[in-house]
Design a protein around this nucleic acid. Structure first.
Lengths: 171, 171, 171, 171
DNA sequence: AATGAATGAGAATTCATTCAT
DNA sequence: CATGAATGAATTCTCATTCAT
C-alpha cells in the first residue's frame, strides 16, 4: 500500500502498473494478488485507510457539537493530517476528479463528508449565522481550496498563515 | 474536440478511448489522427483552447491594475465562464491532479496563472493589505475551492451566494 | 518515380509512405493514384524502368555472341550504368532480398537474367572453358559481389581497379 | 527466435507480424514481449546471435595471421556455416539492404567485418600481393557474391565447385 | 506464503487507398 | 488533371490477471 500510494501520487493511478508497485515493494506480482483481489481493490484500500485516519479527529468527544475551541482544533488538525501525508491527499484529490475512479470509493467518501457537514451546520446554527447550510458549503469550499493549493506546492503555500486567517474568520 | 471533452469529463481521460471519441463525433479513428497527432495532442488542444477562452476575461483593460469594480466584474465573469462550460472545467480540475497529464499542459497553465497572480497582488498592495502575496494565495485558494465544489455538484452548490459573499469580503 | 526511388533507396520500401513520396514530388496523394494503381505498381514501374536501361547494352549487336571486346565493353558498361544510378541499384538489391517484394518483379528480373546467362555461357563454350555453365554462375556471382560492395560504400570501393582485374581474369 | 527467423526469411521482416511469430512459436503475443521489448529487439537478437556463431570460425588461432591452410579452412568453414543456416544468411543479406533495419545492427556488423578485413590484408601482404587492401576488398566482394547467389537458389548453385575455384585462385 | 511465466483482451496508431469535388 | 479529407483494416504494444509450481 505504501509503494502503491507513492507511485499513484507520483505517476497517477492509470500510469502506475502492478509491475511497478510490486517491484517498488520488493514482492512479486502474484503476492500482491494474495492480498488485494485487484488493482481497484488496492486503490480502494489505500483511500479508505487514509479516510479513516482523517475521521478520528473530527468532533473528538463525539457529541455532535462543535465549540469554538473544537473548531480551532479541527482546523489545526485538518491541515496537520494533510501535512503529515501529502502523498495520500494528492491521491485523494486526483481520485476526486476521475469520475470512473470516484465511483469506486463514493460510499466511503460520503461516510466522511456527511457527518462533517452535519456538525459544521450545527456550529453555524448555534452561533447565529443567518444561513448555516450555505456557510457550511462555503467553508468546505475554502478548506478544499486551501488543501488543493497547499498540495500543489507544499514548499511555497503559506499553510500556517492560512489556518490562522481561517480561525480569525470563523471564531 | 467537443466529443472528446464530453467523454473525457464523463469517463476520465484514460477510460475514454479514441474509438469512443470517433464514434461520438461520427468520424473514423483515422480522421482524428489527421487533425491531432495523438490522444495527448487532442487533450492538450482542448485544454489550451479552454484556457484561452478564460484568459479573455481577466483584466479586460489590460492595464495590469484591478479596480474594485473590476474585481467584482472578475469574480462574476470567472464563474460565468465556469457555469457556461462545466465540462471543460471538470476536465481542467481532473487534469490538475493527474501528474502525468499536468506535465503536458504545464506551460499553458503557467501562462494563465502568472499574470492573474500579479494583477491580484497589485490590487491588494494598492488597497493597503498588510501581506498582499499571502492574500493573493488565499484568494486563489478560495476561488479554486468554490470552483471545485460547484463543479462537483452544480445543481446544489449556491454559486451566486458564494460570489456575493466573495465580493463582500474583498471590496 | 524519381522521388519514390530516392526515398525507397534511403528509407526502404516499407518505411516509405505514399505521403512522403507525394510530398517530395510536390503532388497530392490522389494524383499519384492517377498514374500508378498502387504502391506496388509504382515500385514495379521503377524497377522495370531501371532494368530496361540495363538491358540496352548487353550484346549490342544482338547476335547472341560475345567477343572478347564485347565482354570488356560489357564489364565497363555494366558498372558505368550502376555508377550513374546508384540509388536504383541499391533499390534493386534491396528488393532482391525481400521475398514478398521480389515476387512482384520476378518475371521482369528473369527477362534480364536469362539472356545474360545464355550469352555468357556461349562465351565460355567458345573460349574452351571446361565447364561453361559453372563459369557463368561464378562470374555472375563475382559481378553481383562487386556491385553489392560498391553500392554499400561508393566512396571507398575501388570499382575501376576491380573492373580491370575482372577484364584481366576473363579475357 | 527460431520462428521469427524462419518467417522473416520467408516473408521479409515487415510482412511478418508478431501474431504470425507467436502463433508459429506456439506462444501468446504477450509472452514474446516478456523476452523482447519490441519487434526490432527481436530482429537484433537474431542477427547478433547469428553473427556470433559466424565469428567463431574466423582465424581460429586468434593470432591475427592466416596461413594458406587457414585460408583454405576459412573458405570451407565460411560456406559450411552458410549451408547450415540458410535462413539466417538470407535474413542477413535482406537486412544488409534495408537501410532502416541496417541501422539497428550496424555496430554488430562492423565488429564482424573489421577484424576479418584486417586478417585478410595481412595475408595478402605476407604473400607478396602488390595491393593488399584492394585484394581484400575484391575477395570480400567475391565471397559476398557467392553467398548471395547460393542463398538465392541453394539447389542449383554449385557451391562446392565455387569454393574449390576460390581456393585455387588464392592459395 | 510466494513466484513469475503466460495469457489475451484491448488500446493507440499507421497508412494504402478511395472518391466527391 | 488535381486535391486531400475520409476510411478502416491491420499492426504493434500494454498490462491486469491467472495459475501451476
Amino acid at each position: 500500500m505504501e509503494s502503491a500510494l507513492k507511485l499513484f501520487a507520483k505517476h497517477g493511478v492509470y500510469s502506475t502498473t502492478i509491475n511497478m508497485i510490486a517491484q517498488d515493494a520488493g514482492i512479486s506480482k502474484g503476492l500482491m494478488y494474495n492480498y488485494f483481489s485487484s488493482k481497484e481493490e488496492l486503490l480502494k484500500s489505500i483511500i479508505v485507510h487514509g479516510l479513516n485516519e482523517f475521521m478520528q479527529f473530527i468532533d473528538p468527544d463525539e457529541d455532535g457539537i462543535l465549540t469554538k475551541d473544537e473548531l480551532k482544533y479541527f482546523f489545526n488538525q485538518n491541515y496537520k493530517v494533510i501535512q503529515n501525508n501529502i502523498q495520500h491527499w494528492k491521491l485523494y484529490f486526483s481520485v476526486m476528479y476521475q469520475p470512473q475512479i470516484l465511483k469506486l470509493v463514493h460510499k466511503e467518501f460520503m461516510q466522511l463528508l456527511v457527518p462533517m457537514y452535519r456538525i459544521m451546520t450545527n456550529y453555524f446554527t448555534k452561533n447565529g449565522y443567518k444561513n448555516p447550510k450555505f456557510e457550511t458549503k462555503f467553508l468546505i469550499a475554502i478548506l478544499d481550496g486551501i488543501s488543493l493549493n497547499y498540495l500543489n506546492d507544499p514548499e511555497h503555500f503559506p499553510l500556517d498563515k492560512a489556518v490562522k486567517k481561517l480561525i480569525n474568520m470563523y471564531t
